[in-house]
């Protein structure tokens, strides 16, 4: 194997390879690696920052969403309350109107009844008057011939009472 036979070239091979490596190391260390590594680290940092920012924004968005939802819920509740209140109010008004109307109607009924009662009494009185007068007149004319006054009045009164009793009995029925 020439690698073990050509002993004479070993010194130059070792020398030049080590020197060349040292020069390569120096050149790469000095000029090549720093900018590339820096770019790598910058990018890593940027990506990390971007991810952080995105995470933050996501959290903010979620918070905003939660806030909005809470707001919406509150608004819904408020609207519901308002509708509830309005319907309560309207029911109250309705009831009150109903009550009032009923009361008015009852009042009117009562008034009408009273009026009827009064008219009834008045009519009864008038009828009684007329009847009395009529009876008296009739009896007077009738009894002018037959009997004296005193007997006649008593009989008239009796007949009037009978009439009234019968009338009252009718009215009660």
């Amino acid at each position: 194997m020439p690698q073990f036979e050509q002993v004479g070239v070993f010194s130059s091979l070792i020398f030049w390879s080590l020197i060349s490596f040292a020069i390569l190391l120096y050149l790469l260390w000095r000029y090549a690696f720093p900018p590339i590594i820096e770019a790598l680290e910058d990018r890593e940092k940027k990506i990390r920052d971007d991810i952080d920012a995105a995470e933050r924004m996501k959290q903010e968005g979620q918070k905003l969403k939660a806030d909005l939802e809470a707001e919406l819920k509150k608004a819904h509740e408020k609207a519901n309350t308002i509708v509830q209140m309005a319907s309560d109010e309207s029911r109250k008004i309705q009831e009150r109107t109903l009550h009032e109307t009923q009361a008015k109607v009852r009042q009117m009924q009562e008034d009408a009844q009273q009026e009827i009662q009064v008219l009834h009494h008045k009519l009864l009185g008038e009828i009684r008057g007329y009847t009395a007068a009529l009876t008296i007149a009739t009896a007077e004319k009738f009894l002018k011939k037959a009997i004296d006054d005193a007997e006649g009045k008593r009989m008239v009164n009796e007949s009037i009472d009978e009439v009234i009793r019968s009338l009252e009995k009718q009215a009660r029925n």
Binding site: G8, V9, S11, S12, L13, F15, W16, S17, S20, L24, L27, L28, Y31, A32, P35, I36
Partner: peptide, 26 residues
């Protein structure tokens, strides 16, 4: 003996490629 021989020359070619690759990138 510190002669520059074919092995050293081939190595230099390889190293030059590496070096110029990085220099072009930078």
């Amino acid at each position: 003996d510190l002669s520059i021989n074919n092995a050293v020359l081939a190595m230099w070619v390889g190293l030059a490629v590496v070096f110029f690759f990085f220099i072009v990138v930078v």
